[in-house]
Simulated scan of single mutants.
Amino acid sequence: MRTIAEINDKIERKQAVVWTVEEVKTRVEETSVAEVAREVDVVTTGMFEPMESSGALFNLGHTDPPIKIRRCWVDGVPVYSGLGAVDLYLGASEMVEGVEGEETRERGGGQAIEDLIAGKALPLRAVGQVTDCYPRASFETTITRETINQFYLFNPRNLYQNFIVGVNGGDRLLYTYLGPLQPQLGNAVYACSGELSPLLNDPELRTIGIGSRIFLGGSIGYIVGEGTQHFPLQKRLPNKTPIGPAATLAVVGDAKQMSRRWVRGCYFKNYGPSLMIGIGVPLPVLDEEVVACCAVRDRDLVAPVIDLSIPRRIRPTFGLVSYAQLKSGRISIEGKSVRTAPLSSIRRSREIALELKQRIDSGEFTLTEPTAPIPMDRSFLPQNVWGSRITFD
């Protein structure tokens, strides 16, 4: 029906019809897939949730005399320095090193990234490898986003296509990457926004690929390839959506243009820091199949309920539940009513889809043609460790 070039031409002339994914779902139920496909050009989606496989790459610029940084800390958070002399990578889940006090220990890479995006000044301490061309041994300074050169988010695993529902069938409280899980199935936590989630509305990644422009942290970002733990061969329902964690994407964007509203550091008690990121993905309506996929509802999407009290790679499951059940506030597990809570912000996800719609309507945001598709044939390889002793607390 359309090409991305034709859609961009309409966007530039401010004649494109852009709807949020929720508007599309409602209109399909009121009319039909064919009718909506004839009318709409772009569908906007959004998500706002913790994504710990994220981080910031930045370049300090050279000191005088120059230094080849081999160890570095930003606001007490260790920064990876095994790149160029003053190129650094600040991981979102890295923790403050060697400082006592609960308040300090709850800070990490995610909070440091948020503060830099917000324009705050942070202390930096560096130790160098002394060489003939880099004679300086150490230095200390403060940095802001204005006093460093390149500063961009490079996130190896974002935009999860579905996830798990975590529960705790054991006898003690668990502190997990989903937050606290109460013993004896006291609660259930899920981390996906369901029918709002970008990749559940394009389950086979037909409309996006390497080079696709997205909304990332309040600015423009791009998909750079498959994410780590990309597993598109996950089992799927007849509607093509996966029954558990599946595809992931790696993304990049200029952090100097981002907003603290859409990039927030967070901390999971007794687990560690992370980063909440707002991402919006525009889906070009190339044909009716795009709309048919976007018509999927929470009742048509499922996630596995996993018992995280079992400390193994493969854990017991209590079966599948729909996102409609999860969003109702309670699910039933073996006859027990269990309260549910999301890590993903449904309200913020809606706001991102709406803001992206407004940017496209104004002609500010156009689409890009992918340079290559995302591979959809990747299996998931576990790591088997032989000859080592396994201990559990």
Results as ranks from 00 to 15, higher is better:
E195K: 12
A292R: 15
M376W: 00
L216G: 03
N384F: 11
V290R: 00
P273K: 06
G108F: 03
W262E: 03
M47D: 09
D64K: 12
S54V: 09
T44C: 04
R312N: 14
R299Q: 11
A372W: 00
P342L: 08
G227V: 14
L326E: 01
M1I: 02
T228M: 13
K336D: 04
R136P: 00
M47T: 15
P203I: 02
R260I: 00
G194N: 07
R350G: 12
D41Q: 08
F231P: 01
A16M: 03
R315K: 15
G166Y: 09
C72N: 08
G55Q: 12
S328Y: 07
E140K: 05
K120P: 00
L159W: 06
A372Y: 04
A121Q: 13
Y267H: 15
V33A: 08
E30V: 03
N187C: 13
R348A: 13
A372N: 05
Y134I: 05
N384H: 11
I374D: 01
D393L: 12
E146K: 15
P232A: 01
E6N: 11
P311F: 13
A341H: 10
R330V: 09
G363H: 06
P78H: 12
Q15F: 01
E106K: 15
Q15W: 01
K336E: 10
M95V: 07
V224F: 02
W19A: 07
Q150Y: 09
S193M: 12
V21A: 05
L354W: 08
E30F: 07
P123G: 04
K235H: 05
Q129G: 05
C72A: 15
V296N: 10
I331E: 00
L367E: 05
P66M: 06
E94M: 14
G170W: 01
P304N: 05
Y89F: 15
